[in-house]
């Protein structure tokens, strides 16, 4: 078991380092930063949905909360370290409250999906109406539909003048993604993670073993929101502006599509799905003629029909075939047929 874990960590670090250092040779770091940020956002949903069985239609809400918290706290505080921490804690706290309400209220999966979606749409609508000078938090004007520009960017901790953008921002964001990935892996190996997977498989049975599933789901939901919030802060640092569209329906839908296409029930799949689909979107966006959401929808349908387990499990299988089947065949099943750990 421990040998497995060490090998898994080693593999992730090596593969991650190769990708982090190698990708800038073939692609623009400005775009890569966005792929990394979205990869982290997808990982947050992949964790709670793929391993915890919590289908959240409003993961964008926590992404947006992270971005806005970073911007607002940055304007009020200046130095970016505390804003970055708050960008994790505020969404996590919001999710803990929302999650406690949903899980202790024993809402079914469908209601959960609807409530999380409505939560993000309410934030979207409300922030869109905050144009006037009356809507301020400290020194930060919320700015309505145009959002908040001109907040302090990410800086080297303790040195507000050393702002990180361009290549350094990419390396910081990518390293953060790798660290979050390793933390998620560790979490999933821990007792908490293994029991969370049990809850995904059979909630009632796990509660009959004496575990309080409501508390556990609430905690997992909050952890996912914290990761989404960190991704939001990095997004804000990259985009240099935050707008209500972060909370939009399109954003929420895309996160779900990334997870399905990449491979639900795997750690690497959602990251890969987000990166590939965002790249496709950017390339198509350059063409200008095609509606993005239509293409995303089409890709989703094709995957559901022909590759329902997503990319990552197929890659794992290919890898096993290439290395002569030394790898154990995919064992774990995700909620709806996904599998393997990539």
């Amino acid at each position: 078991m421990q040998g497995d874990a060490r090998r898994d960590t080693g593999l992730a670090v090596i593969l991650g380092a190769v990708l982090i250092l190698g990708l800038p040779l073939i692609a623009d770091t400005n775009m890569l930063t966005l792929l990394v940020v979205y990869g982290m956002l997808a990982l947050s949903l992949g964790l709670i949905w793929g391993f915890g069985g919590i289908l959240c239609f409003g993961q964008a809400a926590f992404f947006g909360l992270g971005a806005y918290t970073f911007a607002i706290a940055g304007i009020n505080i200046g130095e970016s370290t505390l804003p970055l921490i708050l960008a994790v804690l505020v969404p996590a706290a919001a999710a803990a409250l929302l999650g406690a309400f949903m899980f202790y209220g024993r809402l079914g999966d469908v209601y959960l999906a609807v409530i999380t979606l409505v939560f993000s749409l309410i934030l979207f609508r409300w922030l869109s109406t905050t144009a006037g000078p009356a809507y301020v938090i400290g020194n930060a004007r919320l700015g309505g539909y145009n959002g908040i520009p001109g907040f302090p960017l990410l800086n080297v901790p303790g040195y507000p003048r050393w702002e990180l953008w361009g290549d350094p921002l990419y390396y910081v964001a990518a390293a953060a993604l790798l660290i979050v990935f390793l933390l998620v892996s560790w979490l999933l190996r821990s007792s908490f993670g293994r029991i969370a997977i049990g809850i995904r498989e059979n909630e009632e049975r796990v509660s009959l073993l004496g575990y309080d599933i409501r508390a556990r789901k609430t905690v997992l939901f909050a952890i996912g929101a914290g990761i989404a919030g960190l991704a939001g802060a990095l997004f804000a640092a990259w985009a240099e502006v935050v707008t209500p569209s972060l909370f939009g329906l399109q954003q929420s839908a895309e996160i779900i599509i990334w997870c399905i296409v990449g491979g639900l029930g795997t750690r690497f799949g959602p990251v890969l799905g987000a990166a590939v689909l965002t790249w496709v979107k950017i390339v198509l966006g350059g063409q200008g003629a095609i509606d993005n959401m239509l293409v995303m929808g089409l890709i989703l349908v094709l995957f559901v029909l022909f590759l329902p387990r997503g990319i990552a499990p197929e890659l794992a299988r290919l890898w096993g075939w290439v290395t002569g089947g030394t790898r154990r065949p995919a064992r774990r099943r995700a909620p709806r047929g996904g599998t393997a750990d990539g």
Binding site: G198, E201, N202, R205, S207, L208, G210, D212, R332, A334
Partner: peptide, 27 residues
């Protein structure tokens, strides 16, 4: 709630077989 009762030290098996299907016997 069931989890509090189970946590007292009560082992329960329902009429309809109920296990964690995607996990191994050991898990």
């Amino acid at each position: 709630d069931p989890h509090r009762i189970a946590a007292l030290g009560v082992g329960i098996k329902m009429q309809v077989s109920s296990v964690m299907d995607g996990l191994s016997v050991q898990e």
